[in-house]
């Protein structure tokens, strides 16, 4: 690990301002992903700004009837919150399907959104990777691709976003609240938060330099049956091959997003409209234009079959 200086920030505005003033500064909260990548020298910050004292660890009701989740709310606490369990069950289920108990106790809401891909070629510093070294190429293309992306990929990157929570947040139409070094704040819809790789897979989110996430908000509950179904190589503590996050209403309409297939949670609103027609119709629209490899083309079939299972569970529950 490279040497770095360290401070604890006392307010979100101060943290963002400090980050802009020191070269190579990064925020650290749970540290479960950043510290791991620092050990491998994939991340090499010169200065760490610890944001754990910023009092962003509360979940509050919003005037619109939704919830404002502080950026520092730990995954365990978000999954266990009684309001989330009752009205946003999908979110609890997604969180509980991810990582281990130890990691969920440390990992934060904002950090979860910002975690980096688990593409093995990103992690192996001997391999070419346009995320690590823009312009160096992508060793994953033509390599071992079973876990990698099938849609929205580019000739520069076929990595996936690893988060389960983000898939649920996308289906729930969450919004990300931030503060910038100049003190201005803004709200970024989840639909716009994660980018597709294009020619710049190193730029993963809509955040600008040194912009700090302060909260994630959820709109008022929409009811329906909430299901998060994750398919993985072992029964616990593994990243998704694919996952389905769905809210299904009694009349068969609803919302659905897919994890494990793209550089961001994959949701196509036009495809959702076909939910009353069944999983085959939805999947055809949802994954239209997919470019899987020989090793991961099974994911297309897996999405359709898992979605069929989810819709069948929803019918049984309503």
């Amino acid at each position: 690990m490279r040497p770095f200086s360290y401070v604890r920030a006392t307010s979100p505005a101060e943290a963002a301002q400090q980050a802009a003033q020191v070269e190579g500064a990064r925020f650290i909260a749970g540290g479960t992903n950043l510290l791991d990548l620092m050990k491998l020298e994939i991340e090499t910050p010169l200065h760490l700004i610890d944001v754990n004292d910023l009092a962003l660890d509360r979940i509050e009701a919003t005037p619109e009837g939704g919830l404002r989740i502080g950026a520092l709310v730990r995954n365990t606490d978000l999954a266990a919150d009684s309001r989330v369990r009752k009205d946003y069950g999908l979110l609890s289920r997604a969180l509980l399907a991810g990582a281990s108990g130890q990691l969920r106790n440390a990992a934060t809401t904002a950090g979860n959104l910002l975690q980096r891909t688990r593409c093995p070629y990103f992690y192996d510093t001997n391999q070419a990777c346009n995320k690590r070294h823009p312009g160096s190429g992508c060793a994953a293309i033509g390599g071992v691709t079973r876990q990698l992306g099938i849609i929205g990929v580019s000739s520069a990157c076929i990595a996936t976003h690893p988060s389960d929570m983000a898939v649920a947040m996308r289906v729930l139409d969450a919004q990300v609240e931030t503060i910038r070094p100049d003190g201005t704040t803004r709200v970024i819809p989840m639909a716009d938060f994660h980018r597709l790789p294009g020619n710049t897979p190193n730029i993963e989110t809509a955040l600008s330099a040194n912009e700090l996430i302060t909260a994630v908000t959820l709109p008022a509950p929409v009811g329906g049956t909430h299901i998060y179904q994750k398919v993985r190589d072992r029964a616990s503590y593994a990243f998704a091959l694919i996952s389905i996050a769905a809210v299904v209403q009694k009349n068969g309409t609803g919302h659905v997003a897919v994890g494990g297939v793209a550089h961001r949670p994959w949701r196509v609103e036009e495809a959702e409209k076909l939910m009353p027609d069944g999983a085959k119709a939805v999947t055809a629209k949802l994954l239209a234009g997919a470019t899987p490899t020989h090793e991961n083309e099974f994911k297309v079939t897996l999405v359709e079959r898992t979605l069929a299972s989810v819709m069948s569970q929803a019918r049984a529950a309503s």
Partner: peptide, 10 residues
């Protein structure tokens, strides 16, 4: 927690 994934200063 995993003590390997948190800094002592934190």
């Amino acid at each position: 927690v995993n003590s390997c994934l948190t800094l002592a200063v934190m």
